[in-house]
């Protein structure tokens, strides 16, 4: 049961992160596995629910903050990363998790995605990628495959899908992973490492929409996913990571594609944040000395 974030005596477990509200996703939706994996990952960090804030946009998967027991913000469609950046910079002592779908993150929020990636701000971004717009009952998405028939592309999509992993790697992401909601244990480990990673971490998840996407089903992915960890892939090698990100066919790699632990996160580079969270400051006034120095420059 949820405890509204009251301090927990023993080490937190996944149960402590279970929200008060039962998810209203379609029975069998891939997002259930993502939520379970996330609860496990949060618990594994040893942090308590009130130390996390989960921020989403709009879409089926963006309802997740309502179902997990952490602080939450359910923001506008496509804007979760911008809000999350403000939140993190305001209180960088908190762990910030952003969740959403492929339409939310790679479509309407595409501009924020690129720029949040390059800033390398410390947050984990989980994209429940189902290659379809679910909440609006089945239109093509930025990751729908060419030829896919949806309500908005009844004769098949004639647009190339974008490649979120390659895009993230090339835009300066320092942690790029892909999981499958049919393998929550593996997914949870990717999330745990993403939370602990200091910098921007993308976890793109195959999270099938069982109602509107008849192409990219659980069975489709089960047959194809292939764990990078079992293939000796070196995640510090950007070239190799890009090569893996380009693979799509009978085998589709999942796991940690790329990790760079050498770059500073945005917050580490900002002297203003070095003496504590700006959102928690209570002494806000300009001092007499500061005021005098400002006036001096105007005279």
């Amino acid at each position: 049961m949820a405890n509204d974030g009251k301090p927990i005596k023993a080490a937190p477990t996944a149960k402590d992160f279970k929200g008060n509200i039962a998810p209203d996703w379609c029975p069998g939706c891939g997002d259930f596995g993502v939520l379970r994996a996330l609860e496990m990952a949060c618990a594994k960090t040893g942090r308590e629910p009130h130390e996390f804030v989960t921020i989403s946009g709009i879409g089926c998967s963006s309802n997740l903050p309502g179902f997990i027991n952490t602080y939450g913000m359910h923001t506008l469609h496509g804007r979760s990363l911008a809000v999350a950046t403000g939140m993190k910079l305001s209180n960088h002592e908190m762990k910030v998790i952003v969740t959403g779908g492929d339409g939310d993150g790679y479509g309407i929020g595409g501009n924020h995605f690129l720029h949040t990636v390059r800033r390398n701000i410390d947050l984990m971004y989980i994209v429940m990628n189902n290659q379809i717009y679910g909440l609006t009952i089945g239109q093509t998405s930025p990751t729908s495959r060419m030829g896919m028939k949806t309500k908005s592309t009844p004769f098949g999509s004639i647009e190339q899908p974008l490649n979120p992993l390659a895009l993230a790697i090339l835009s300066g992401a320092t942690y790029v992973a892909r999981g499958f909601s049919g393998d929550t244990k593996h997914l949870s480990e990717l999330m745990y490492r993403a939370i602990e990673h200091n910098g921007f971490a993308l976890v793109d998840v195959f999270s099938p929409c069982i109602t509107f996407n008849k192409d990219n089903t659980f069975a489709f992915f089960k047959q194809r996913v292939n764990k990078l960890e079992e293939q000796g892939h070196d995640p510090t090698n950007m070239q190799a990571a890009l090569e893996q990100a380009m693979i799509w066919g009978d085998e589709i790699p999942i796991g940690l594609f790329y990790e760079d632990t050498t770059r500073d996160a945005l917050e580490d580079l900002e002297p203003v944040l070095q003496d504590g969270a700006i959102g928690r400051k209570t002494d806000l006034a300009v001092t007499k000395e500061q005021g005098e120095s400002i006036v001096k420059r105007m005279m």
Binding site: I55, G86, L89, S90, M94, I278, G279
Partner: peptide, 8 residues
């Protein structure tokens, strides 16, 4: 808005 929610 995110920063304001965080308290700043």
């Amino acid at each position: 808005i995110g920063a304001a929610h965080g308290g700043a």
